[in-house]
Amino acid sequence: MSMRGRLATVLGLFLVAVGLIVWSVAAFLTPGTPGGVMDFTKTHAPGQAVNITAQTVGSIGFGPHPTWVSYLVKDPTTGKWVQDTTWKLPANTTINMTIYNYDSGSPLRNQQLGQVLGTTNGKATLDGTSFSNYNSNTGDGVGHTFAVPSLGVYVPLAGVNGNATLCGVAPCHVNQPHRTVTFSFRTGAAGSYRWQCFVPCGLGYLYGNGGGMSTQNYMGGFLEVVR
């Protein structure tokens, strides 16, 4: 090979190596997108509230952990139920939540979580009736909670009567036994806010906080609040 050809080969290989290094460093430093992000900003008109419809189920019925509890959320564009707990939301916006709980309940480990906090007027509605706290020691207890600690939002989701034939495969349909909880809260400044269920509903795990309680897209995730 000529001197020029050899130089070109060396230079070419050098550039390939540099490119690979830059690419791998960049890939390492760029945070990966977890599973998926349910984007509520695309369909959002400025100044308007965002409506989120979610459901909680006692067993997801599909995927790698069919027996685990889970949240599901309705895609605002397709109207389909998706098992996704990272929600992209606009900042400083009112969020109207509707959650259908298809799971049975129990007394809360920490009864404090029966108190509704951080919602508009400090209230929520359960099957159409307004309430500000729920005694989980009575009736059908609490199945799950929706809580965003950094925003101070806490809402208990009352359980379905355990004797009913419960939905076992998600997504569940409103003609199956469920409780409907609605409430509104405001997102604050842009940022990443963790939300989670505070009922130790990961049955069979230590303190009930493993399994679905410790896995994203089941009982907790993030509100990715953007400007």
Binding site: S106, P107, L108, R109, Q111, Q112, G114, N133, N135, S136, N137, V199, P200, C201, G202, L203, G204, Y205, L206, Y207, G208
Partner: peptide
Amino acid sequence: NLPPFAWTYVPDANGAAGG
């Protein structure tokens, strides 16, 4: 609905059932 104030509380280690 909370238990009376005490220094420690015993949770149910088995999961959701039990306050």
